[in-house]
Design a protein around this nucleic acid. Structure first.
Length: 862
DNA sequence: CTGGTGCATGATAGT
DNA sequence: CTATCATGCACCAGG
């Protein structure tokens, strides 16, 4: 422990402060431990950036600890420094920032007047929506400072609150809870200060012994739940019943966090300070705020992840009857097992014990719960003994889950209807809420943010939107859990990154984190450096990336690739060079590459049918990638039986994979597709261990399922044939009507597009297949959904239909080389490839190859 | 054989 | 280090 002069400009003018060497940094050297909160950071930006909380007092953005400037400063003596931080004109001039004893802090704080008219907390964006010019300037300045210093954490708002639940004095808490809550700049800015570093394991507090300060210090509560919203029937479930200090301190952080979840908005002058009260009201009612839960039984405070995040609008919808009151209790993001057919919803223990009836018997009790539609469900609320503890579950939830069409990743909420205490169950779909980026879909390689759902239904923004040139309005605590941040910080580093990706790669993306990465655009005029982390190349840059417009890629001409984007105004699709990155908002006017089609009035280049085809093919590319990703790497190519197993499984599910990226894997809870850990790279148990001759239950099941799969395929095929016939007729008319006058190039292109999905033109089809069925190595991939179009890309002579015929035969025929007619060709082909080992029919690539190339014995791929 | 049930296990967050 | 919780899995009952 020693002292040094802080050279951080944000700190003010070279404050003398205590410091201590922290853990080693990747970049060399050591992290500094914040003398204030004890946490270690790679820089001390946060802890050295204070804002004014009370005259003469400064509060650390991050740890909320208050410091007195060391003199009895008046408002006029305290000012925001040009480059951030707060300077006391008295202290700063003497370059001295006293770190006072914590008991001094407490005592000093307690001595402060509660309602100081000169309170500098006028920078609030809450109660005082429109601040005076000076305050506005300060706020702007501070925001700028925050942006400048932690640009890549700007969207990680609420997560940090979990860690930042550092206490406050009871006096302040009580005071603020009685109406002064809305003031204070601290909470407004708080959502920005989340730093992954804050969650580093060593908080350093032991060394600095500031923990008790935290527990007794006070958070800044900046808003009153529901106050501006007009949600009159919403009860602020504030835990105020306890007088026990410890309990109080436990109860307060949730509340504090709930308050802090109200973020400062990205552009304070625009959205924050200049926002009218009315506007603010409207916005507030739709803000998805993590509301601290109602006071329940028991002493366990709920983890923030379970706080109900419900908008006032939803509350009103839920309550319906204005005479009743909805008390949000808790919510939970459905896990795979919750949403699975097993019908058991694991309840957070604290929630179950706090809000559900107490049960002593493991069998539990029936629990009546009403859903948002008014339908009443009865679940069995019970527990299992688990490690001297209990594991609470709701059983029999499957019908309810299904009726609400919930899946893993969606959120289920529990509220109480007062009077009466009836339990109300609501839900939020992950695809429509900002849940998308939650902990189960961590934003970097360990996770899979879905690109589909960046916007919530009510207009709340998730971080994906926030990245769009701004920052999030609100991010759920789940979205950036400490674990995610820890991993990111440790493995990836703190700089903003975008997975290095060119358009060809983007073309092959599936709807995963990779695709989301594709949407990220490097910050303008930034030259990224390339780093490789765990076999992924990342562009690294200091500024946060922005979100770009989604486009599709299409290779309609040999060797050439096109990019197509849709105008945000007229929704027409425009062709672009393949290498351009579009901003998130793009219109025809921005189409500088095509002078003819640079306005919305210009006609679309393609007919609707062509567009449909292109979009469909593009979609298929992605599906294809999804399916491919479920196969083993080429060097460990799965056996034919494995492929069959995959086919059997994916036959049911492949089509949904892209839409269930939120869902959990079957590996283990916190590993997602793309995870390369030792657990996830292992094949499922049993895979690869079975011979083709194996007649174990698993193998027989697989074979049976394969047969079922083929039967289903046949059924669908017949349905599709009718559709294709109709489509072909339509296209014929379409071509006749629309494309006679088009250029030769376009004409041929059109044909190619058409041939993507129709096999009349074999030549084009082959070329298309070469693009579509990339890296097939002469095999047809069974690991795809029967519904998929590219399953139809087949040899006209046989393939699927024969396969279907074969599937109709008794299973035994599959196992015999001289089976039926339909399979004969398959078998013979197989036999050739299997060197006479007929049992390979079901067990290796030969089978798949034969299925794919059928009687022609010749791959379609050039 | 299938699906349900209850417990065990292991990852991870929190202390 | 401990508590929590997601999920795996053995066991069992019923079809």
């Amino acid at each position: 422990m020693g002292t040094r002069i802080c050279m951080n400009a944000l700190c003010g003018t070279g404050a003398t402060r205590e410091w201590k060497k922290g853990w080693p940094l990747r970049s060399g050297g050591y992290a500094d431990l914040c003398f204030n909160c004890g946490s270690a950071y790679e820089n001390l930006v946060f802890c050295e950036t204070y804002h004014l909380e009370e005259p003469g007092w400064r509060e650390c953005y991050l740890c909320r600890k208050r410091l007195h400037c060391g003199c009895i400063a008046s408002k006029s003596m305290l000012e925001l420094l040009d480059y951030g931080g707060v300077g006391c004109s008295a202290c700063a001039m003497t370059s001295r920032l006293h770190s006072i004893q914590r008991d001094e802090i407490r005592n000093g704080f307690c001595a402060l007047k509660i309602n100081d008219a000169d309170d500098l907390r006028s920078t609030s964006v809450e109660n005082r929506v429109v601040g005076d010019d000076a305050d506005e300037g300060k706020l702007t300045q501070l925001c700028r400072v925050m942006e400048a210093n932690e640009p890549n954490f700007l969207h990680q708002s609420l997560r940090c609150d979990t860690s930042a639940s550092l206490g406050q004095d009871k006096q302040e808490e009580v005071r603020r809870s009685h109406g002064e809550v809305g003031s204070g700049f601290s909470g407004a800015i708080q959502p920005y200060v989340g730093s992954p570093k804050f969650n580093k394991p060593d908080s350093g507090r032991s060394m600095l012994d500031v923990r008790d300060t935290h527990e007794s210090a006070q958070p800044s509560l900046n808003m009153t739940l529901g106050v501006p919203s007009g949600g009159s029937n919403f009860v602020v479930p504030f835990s105020n019943g306890s007088t026990d200090g410890k309990e109080q301190s436990k109860a307060s952080p949730p509340f504090q966090q709930g308050q802090r979840s109200r973020p400062i908005l990205p552009k304070p002058p625009k959205y924050g300070l200049n926002m009218s009260s009315e506007t603010n009201k409207g916005a507030t009612s739709q803000l998805r705020i993590a509301r601290p839960p109602a006071d329940g039984r028991g002493k366990n405070h709920l983890l923030p992840r379970y706080w109900p995040r419900i908008t006032d609008q939803e509350l009103q919808q839920l309550s319906g009857d204005l005479n009743s009151t909805i008390v949000p209790l808790f919510e939970k993001i459905l896990s795979a097992s919750d949403a699975g057919r097993i019908g058991r919803l694991v309840l957070p223990k604290a929630c179950a014990e706090a809000y559900f009836p107490s049960i002593s018997q493991s069998e539990g009790i029936p629990l009546r719960v009403q859903d948002v539609k008014g339908k009443e469900w009865v679940f069995q609320f019970r527990f299992w003994p688990n490690n001297n503890s209990r594991m609470y579950v709701l059983e029999g939830v499957t019908p309810c889950i299904q009726s609400m069409q919930l899946r893993a990743g969606d959120t289920i909420t529990f509220s109480r209807l007062d009077p009466g205490g009836k339990l109300i169950m609501g839900f939020r779909k992950a695809t429509n809420s900002d849940e998308t980026q939650d902990a189960q879909t961590s934003p970097l390689p360990n996770g899979t943010p879905s690109g589909e759902s960046s916007l919530s239904a009510n207009g709340d923004t998730s971080w994906s939107k926030s990245a769009n040139g701004g920052r999030t309005n609100e991010v759920s605590p789940q979205q950036y859990t400490p674990v995610t941040e820890k991993k990111r910080t440790r493995n990836i580093g703190s700089k903003s990154k975008r997975l290095l990706m060119n358009s060809e790669e983007a073309m092959e993306l599936r709807l995963t984190w990779e695709e989301a990465q594709d949407l990220l655009r490097p910050p303008p005029s930034v030259k990224p450096s390339i780093v490789t982390i765990e076999d992924h190349e990342f562009e690294e840059y200091d500024e946060p990336p922005v979100f770009g417009k989604r486009t599709i890629f299409m290779a309609r001409l040999p060797g050439g690739q096109e990019q197509w984007a849709q105008c945000d105004d007229c929704s027409k699709w425009r062709k672009l060079p393949s290498d351009v990155l579009l901003p998130p908002k793009w219109t025809c006017l921005d189409n500088v590459w095509d002078s003819i089609r640079c306005s919305c009035s210009a006609p679309e280049e393609m007919s609707p049918k062509e567009l449909e085809n292109i979009l469909r093919v593009s979609k298929d590319f992605k599906k294809r990638k999804i399916v491919d990703s479920h196969k083993q790497a080429p060097e460990c190519e799965s056996s034919g039986l494995d492929a069959l197993a995959s086919a059997a499984v994916l036959g049911d599910n492949a089509g949904d994979i892209g839409e269930t990226s939120v869902g959990a894997t079957t590996k283990h809870p916190r590993h997602r597709p793309g995870c390369s850990c030792i657990v996830c790279i292992q094949p499922p148990s049993g895979k690869g261990k079975h011979k083709s001759t194996c007649v174990c239950n698993v193998c027989l099941t697989v074979k049976r399922r394969f047969k079922t799969l083929m039967l289903r395929k046949k059924r669908r095929l017949s349905e599709r044939e009718a559709a294709i016939a109709e489509s072909a007729q339509f296209q014929k008319d379409d071509n006749d009507n629309h494309h006679k006058g088009e250029s030769e190039t376009n004409g041929s292109t059109n044909n190619e597009v058409m041939n993507m999905n129709h096999s009349e033109n074999e030549t084009s089809q082959k070329r298309s297949q070469a693009e579509v069925v990339e890296s097939s190595n002469g095999q047809i991939d069974l690991n795809c959904h029967p519904n998929r179009e590219d399953m139809q890309i087949e040899d006209p002579g046989l393939s699927i239909m024969s396969l279907v015929d074969a599937a109709n035969m008794p299973l035994e025929n599959y196992m015999q080389p001289n089976g039926g007619v339909g399979l004969g060709s398959l078998s013979s082909c197989l036999l050739e490839q299997a060197n006479g080992q007929s049992e390979r029919l079901m067990s290796d690539e030969g089978f798949l190859a034969s299925v794919g190339w059928g009687q022609n014995q010749e791959p379609n791929i050039d």
